[in-house]
């Protein structure tokens, strides 16, 4: 488990700030913020969100991109969540869908997708029944000791566990394929790990797109041939890498 990539790491960081550093910052992260790059309006950037929290609650995607390119790793998304007071009511529980040595863990809504995938690679399945807020993880559940692998970027980040692409080489033979990959927001800091793991399993990434959050930028021409790791982008018509892998594994 890489602490640096987990929600808990940033929760600790958040506590070390008495106020948002963005209030004094020229905006080192500004070109990483999708709502800013779309509008080019400073209000819809960390500089604006920290000054107008109501607007942040409404507009900020909590994609964490600003945090990953901030020199002090300021977790703005947590500030916005607190402002929205969502954290209080929302937490989640685990449901074991299928036993196994290692578990693929993801949101309940993706359970059917996970079933197909885990079938191919021989993993157990755990579903989380709520993760749209990353705040307030229920630490009483006993999944801590289980060996978990995240299915979605959100879950990997929340639990601080490897995303499946980081360990995929352990479960497959050589897949021998070349793809264009879209790296979703929450997996940005793990680029090196993901690429080297994919390479080990014979997936060559000839192009990587990481400057776009496909939840808000329409998929258009630029994203046509891409495979993404963000299941939330399914609504926009994006293609998921796990669908491709399912076809390739064991064929």
């Amino acid at each position: 488990m890489t602490n640096r990539y987990s929600y808990q790491y940033y929760q600790k960081r958040f506590q070390s700030f008495s106020e948002a550093p963005c209030l004094y910052c020229p905006g080192n992260c500004i070109t990483s913020c999708p709502t800013f790059t779309q509008t080019r309006n400073t209000l819809y950037s960390p500089l604006g969100y920290t000054r107008s929290l109501d607007i942040a609650v409404d507009k900020c995607l909590k994609c964490w991109r600003c945090t990953f390119s901030c020199p002090v790793e300021y977790p703005l998304s947590i500030l916005v969540e607190r402002a929205a007071e969502r954290c209080r009511e929302k937490c989640f529980g685990y449901v074991i869908i299928k036993d196994g040595g290692k578990y693929l863990v993801g949101e309940l809504e993706y359970v059917n997708r996970m079933k197909v995938f885990s079938e191919k690679v021989g993993l157990g399945i755990v579903a989380l029944d709520y993760v749209s807020s990353l705040e307030n993880r229920d630490s009483s559940v006993s999944m801590e000791e289980k060996d978990m692998i995240g299915y979605s970027p959100e879950v990997s980040f929340l639990l601080g566990v490897p995303h499946y692409t980081e360990v995929i080489y352990e479960f497959t033979g050589n897949l021998d394929i070349t793809i264009k990959l879209h790296l979703p927001c929450l997996l940005l800091p793990r680029e090196t790990e993901i690429l080297s793991s994919l390479e080990k399993t014979g997936v060559t990434v000839e192009e990587i797109v990481k400057d776009v959050c496909i939840r808000i930028e329409n998929t258009g021409e630029k994203l046509k041939d891409l495979y993404t790791l963000c299941p939330r982008a399914l609504e926009t018509g994006a293609k998921l890498l796990d669908d491709l892998l399912i076809q390739l594994i064991g064929t």
Binding site: P21, C25, P26, P71
Partner: peptide, 9 residues
């Protein structure tokens, strides 16, 4: 080299 905010905070 682009970090201004660390020292300020």
């Amino acid at each position: 080299r682009f970090d201004i905010i660390s020292e300020i905070t």
